[in-house]
Amino acid sequence: MILTDVLGSDVVDNSGQRLGEVSDVRFAVDASPGQLLSKARMVGIVVSPRTASSFLGYERRGITQPWPVAQLLRWRHRGSFLVLWEDIAVIGPREVVLRPGFTAYESTLAF
């Protein structure tokens, strides 16, 4: 699977109701760092209800400067959430279908 095929896909729940678009895919490198990085497993997808484009991740990080830009981008991505891999039923270039009773998590990164 190629990542950019998934970015921008519509995200729907199991009843077909549209929830937004895939704005990013989150990975975690769990094992302790060595000379080379260990496997990066997919944690989940970041869903944005309005736009798939993300500019510098203002909405996911604690960046507040320049203030008007930070406010605008945070407002544009309001309602973004993270869906874990376990809650994804189908993933494809046209749409991503979530499992019934999926859980929405905050999409912010630790900062």
């Binding site: 704005s23 990013d24 989150r26 990975f27 975690a28 094992a31 990085l37 990066a40 996911r60 630790a110």
Partner: peptide, 9 residues
């Protein structure tokens, strides 16, 4: 616990 990477970011 480890490094978290958002693909686009």
């Amino acid at each position: 616990a480890g490094l978290v990477l958002d693909a686009q970011l």
